[in-house]
Design a protein around this nucleic acid. Sequence first.
DNA 1: GATCTGCTTTACATGGTGTCAAGCGCGCCT
DNA 2: AGGCGCGCTTGACACCATGTAAAGCAGATC
Lengths: 200, 200
Amino acid sequence: MVSSAPVLHTRARILEAARALAEDRGTNFRLEDVAQAARVSRQAVYLHFGSRSGLLLALVEHVDKSEGLPRYSQRVRSAPTGVDELLAFIDLIAEYTPRIYLIAKVLDEARRTDPAARAADENRMLLRREGCTRHIRRLHDEGRLAAGWTVQGAAETLWALTNVSTWEDLVLDRGWSRQAYARRLKRLCLATFVRPPAAG
Amino acid sequence: MVSSAPVLHTRARILEAARALAEDRGTNFRLEDVAQAARVSRQAVYLHFGSRSGLLLALVEHVDKSEGLPRYSQRVRSAPTGVDELLAFIDLIAEYTPRIYLIAKVLDEARRTDPAARAADENRMLLRREGCTRHIRRLHDEGRLAAGWTVQGAAETLWALTNVSTWEDLVLDRGWSRQAYARRLKRLCLATFVRPPAAG
DNA sequence: GATCTGCTTTACATGGTGTCAAGCGCGCCT
DNA sequence: AGGCGCGCTTGACACCATGTAAAGCAGATC
């Protein structure tokens, strides 16, 4: 009979402990701290994750899974028009970035030393860039991409505009609300990428 | 009589050595390496800079001085109109960012652990933000700021658009040329911030 | 009851930062 | 010339986090 109490496995406890530590200290935590918070020995961390960066990578996966990006992006793609899709994408970014912010920082730190972390980070960026390309291509296919842009150029620009560090600058540093961030980014993208409808 | 040979003081030699190391290894260098490259003992580094982050901060100052930002920004401010000033500012960013890129990274790394580095970095950001505010305010004063923007909102947006990590994403990661970066950023800023002249 | 598994405990190696103290060469001053 | 101070060297060492190794132990399984 399985225990009915909400007891987490050691592995999960370690991950949750690391997540909590990352949320209030950034990535400046020692494995000793993580172990203590999870009420296991430091060696248990090594048995499960092999190394510090192994833990960080597992942490990224863990948070990703628990935040569930897929259902968000589903909503974006089901927008009626390309313009709506672009706006929905910005809403998604405004909503999703704060949830994965600390993880993005963790990954960013780990990539300095660990090739696996670097690869993982580049894969994340690639996925987001592909998303941007889809949005821009749809705009283009519907004849609404502003003059002067190639699909690739606009997609890469959109990708850079919606990266984590820009969000960090505006929301965390400048104190913009989620709404203000979304509103201004939408204004910017509409003015930049969207050709006005041929209303004449 | 002062020696006429181009012999650098120990302090300057250390800084140059650190700069060279940073340029090809990022910030993953040991003080031992710096000392060796400067042909001094590791302790000499401590005597001059006190600590690792002390060295990094001095390095930032050193590079800043040797690149001479002021004359660049003078050129920007002497533009005939606000729109020209905005475009000149983007040219400045496109030209100047690659020169200080590695330094910005160094500072970014140091700020994680060192409060002084954090303060220095925030001061840099403040200066650039003030510049952005001046450009946008002039645009506004000349009646050319696009509808829907406050001076502050537009200035902070421009500031975020021209930050180092966006440049890094587009130029280093995506391989954009300096010209492509400047051209597309100009197109974006014109479309976003500039109200068309009342023609007709 | 033997064994396997997952974790603990203790000890130790490694590598980089930072500190300390003694010493040394060289220019300067009187 | 002798003495002084300064800038740097030399070598040793403390510290701290990561990572490794080996023995032990307690509960589940057969």
